[in-house]
Design a binder for these strands. Structure first.
Lengths: 210, 210, 210, 210
DNA sequence: GATGAATGAGGGTTCATTCAT
DNA sequence: AATGAATGAACCCTCATTCAT
C-alpha cells in the first residue's frame, strides 16, 4: 500500500523535474540552463536530479530522446498520408514542422537548439541521436514520389533536394520571426501556406517568360 | 625610437586581445566565452581587457562593429558589379556570403551567432547595429532589377523574396556542412555555384511539364 | 545519534557564519565587509554562505533582523517598569541604550551603522525594518507620562522631544568615547547616570513646577 | 611665456582633481570613493592624481586639511562676536555649524564622515589632525563666559558641557534629517533657531538665577 | 527514495598603484 | 608635467556535483 503510493509520488517528482528541465533547456539552451534553477522550480532537492539523471548532460539527453520520440510520432502519423506530388508533399512537410513547433514548442526548440548550439562535451552523443533520427526520417519523406510530372531535363533527385531546401528555409524563417518578435501570428499555418503556395507556384511553372 | 616601439607593443596587446576574443566568441558564443580564457591566451592581465573594452559586452560589440565593417567592405566592392538579371544576381549574393565566410570565417560566425543567440543584455544594441547594416544592405541588393523578364502573373516582389530565401538557405546549408565536417570543400565557390545553377535553372523555367 | 551530531555540526556552521559575519559587518560596515573574509574566518567554503543567505545583502538583513529582535527583548523587559516621571524615564531609556550596547555591542553597532551608512541597494528594506521597529518602540517609550509636573508655559510635547534629544546625544557621546578609546569605563552605567543626573537636575528646575 | 601658461594650466588641473575628489569623497566616503572615477570626471590621466597626491590617502588628507582650514576661517570670524551669555552663545555655535554645512556642504560632510567612518589605514593621522583642530577650537568657544548668571548649586563647567552636548545633538539632528530626505528646509537657520529657542528657554529657567 | 549541506573553481568586474614614455 | 598601459588581488556570486544522512 505504502509502496504504491510512494511509487506514484516518486514518478511524479521525476516527471516534475523533467517538465521543468524541458522548459529551462528550451528557453536558455544547454550551457545557460541551471540545475539549481530546475530543482528550485521543481520543488525538489538538488540531489534528486542527479540521483535520477546522473548529471546535467544525462538529463539533457533524456529530454532529447523524448523530443525525438515526439517528433517521430507526429511524423509516423503523417507518413501514410503523404501525397505523391512533390509540391503537394512539400506543403505537408512544412505543415509537419510548423505543427510540431506549435503543438510542442518546447521540444521543438530543444531539438533546434541541439543542432545549432551543441554543447561540446555532448557533441558526439547528440549528433549520433539526431543523425539516427534524420537517417530514418529524411529518406522516407521523399520516397514514392511521382516522377512523371517533371519536365524533361529536370533531375528529379535535384528537384527534391531543392524543394527540401525551400521547406527548411521557410519553416526556419517563420520560427525565427516568431522567436524574435514573440508574435504567434507567425505560427499560423494558413498564412504560411499561402506564402508557400505562391512560391511553389513559381517553381511549378518557372518564373521567366517563354 | 623607444617611444615608437612601445606604442607598437601597446597596440599589439590590444590587437592581441581583439584577435583572441574574436576566436573565443566565434567558437563558443557570447555567454560561453570567458574573459578569463581570453586574457590567459592573450598573455595579458585581467584588468587590461576591461581597461580597453570596458566590459565583456563592450568587447563583443567592438568585435561586431569590426565584423560589420568587414562585411560592408566586401559588399561595397561587389555592389557596382551586380547584374540586372535576378537569377544572375542571386548567384552573386550567394558568392558574397560564401566569400565572407571563407575569407573571414571567424567574423562570419560571429555575425551569424549574433543573430541566433542574442545575449539578452545586449539585445537592443545588437539588433540596432545589425538592423542598420541590413537596412543599408538589403534594399540595394535587390534594386535596379530587370522586371521585364518575369512571366505574366508573377509578382516580382514575391519572386525576389523567394530567391532571397533560397540564397539564405543554400549558403547556410554549405556553412553548416563545413562546420560540422570541417571539410573545406564545402566552401569551394565553384561547386556551390554549380548546385545553385541547377536550382536556378529549375526556377527559371519551372519544374513541371508544359 | 549520528544524525543528531551532524545536524548540530550543520547548524554550527550556519551559526559560525552568522557570528563571524556579525563581527565583520559591525566592525567594517556593510560595503567594506567582505564575504571572502567571513568565509575564511568561519572556516567554510565560499559557496556555503550563499547557500544559506543568498547574498551579501541577505546575510546582512538576517543579522539586522536578529539585532532588532535582541533590542526588542531588552526593550520589552524594560517597558513595564517605565516610570511616569519624564526625567526618571529618560534615565531608564539611556540605560536601555547603553545596556544594549554593552551587552551586545556588535548588534548595537550594526543597528547604529544601518542608519548612518545605509547601503543604497538595501535602503528600502532596511528603512522598512528599522522604521517598523521605531514605530512600535518610540511612541510607547514616551506614553503614560505624568504631565502634571510641567511648569506653566512648557509645551509637554516639546519637553519630551528635548529630553529625547538629550538621551540620544548622551548615549552617543559615551559610545563614541568607548569606540575611540576602547576604554570600557565609558560603558559603566553608574558613571553615566551620575553625569545624566547632573544634567537632568539642571533641566528639572527649568521645566518643573516650583 | 610658455612656462607661465603651463603653470596656470598645471594649477588648474591640480585644482580640478581637488574639486572633483572633494565631491566624490564627501558623497561616498573614503573607501567607497574611486580614484578611477575622480580622474575620469576631472578629465585627467590616472597617473597625475598620484603624481600630485601620492596616494588615495594623501589626496584625502589634503582635502581634510583644506576642510579644517575652511572651518577655522568661519570660526575665527565668529570668535570675536561671541556673546558672554551662555545660552546666547550656544545659539551662535549652532549657527556656526549650520552655516558651515550650508555654505560648504561638501567640506562639512567630509569632516563629519572623517569622524564617523574613519578609514583604518589613516586612522592615526586623521585623529591627529582633527584633534588638533578641536583642541584649538573647543576651549575658546566656551571661554570668557559670564558665570554670574548661573543659579547657586549649578556647576558652570557642567552647564557648559550640557549645552555643548545639546548643540551637537541638535545640529546633528538637522543634518541627518537633511541627508536622509534631501529637503533643504532642514538647513533653514531660522526654523532651527526657533526650535533651539524653545529648548533653551526650558533650560534657562533651570540653570539661571531667579 | 530523498534531502540539502558542502565544496571550490570559475564567472565578470573594480581597484589603487606603478612606470615607461 | 602628464599620459594611460599594465598589473593582479580582491570583489560578490553561480555552478555542477558529491555525500552523509
Amino acid at each position: 500500500m505504502k509502496k504504491r503510493k510512494s511509487r506514484v509520488l516518486t514518478e511524479e517528482k521525476k516527471e516534475q523535474i523533467f517538465q521543468v528541465a524541458l522548459k529551462e533547456f528550451a528557453e536558455k539552451g544547454y550551457e545557460q540552463a541551471s540545475t539549481n534553477t530546475i530543482c528550485k522550480e521543481a520543488g525538489v532537492a538538488k540531489g534528486l536530479l542527479f540521483h535520477y539523471y546522473g548529471s546535467k548532460g544525462g538529463l539533457y539527453l533524456s529530454l532529447l530522446d523524448k523530443g525525438v520520440d515526439k517528433f517521430m510520432q507526429i511524423y509516423d502519423k503523417m507518413l501514410p498520408q503523404l501525397a505523391p506530388d512533390i509540391l503537394k508533399r512539400i506543403e505537408q512537410i512544412l505543415e509537419l514542422k510548423i505543427r510540431f513547433y506549435s503543438e510542442d514548442s518546447l521540444f521543438s526548440s530543444l531539438l533546434v537548439n541541439a543542432f545549432i548550439d551543441i554543447p561540446t562535451e555532448l557533441e558526439g552523443e547528440i549528433r549520433n541521436k539526431l543523425n539516427r533520427m534524420y537517417e530514418k526520417y529524411l529518406p522516407r519523406l521523399y520516397e514514392h514520389l511521382d516522377y512523371e510530372v517533371f519536365r524533361d531535363g529536370i533531375d528529379p533527385q535535384k528537384a527534391i533536394e531543392f524543394v527540401g531546401l525551400i521547406t527548411d528555409a521557410l519553416s526556419e524563417k517563420y520560427i525565427k520571426a516568431y522567436k524574435s518578435t514573440g508574435d504567434k501570428k507567425y505560427l499560423n499555418l494558413e498564412s504560411i501556406k499561402v506564402e508557400m503556395e505562391i512560391y511553389l507556384d513559381m517553381l511549378r511553372k518557372g518564373i521567366y517568360k517563354g
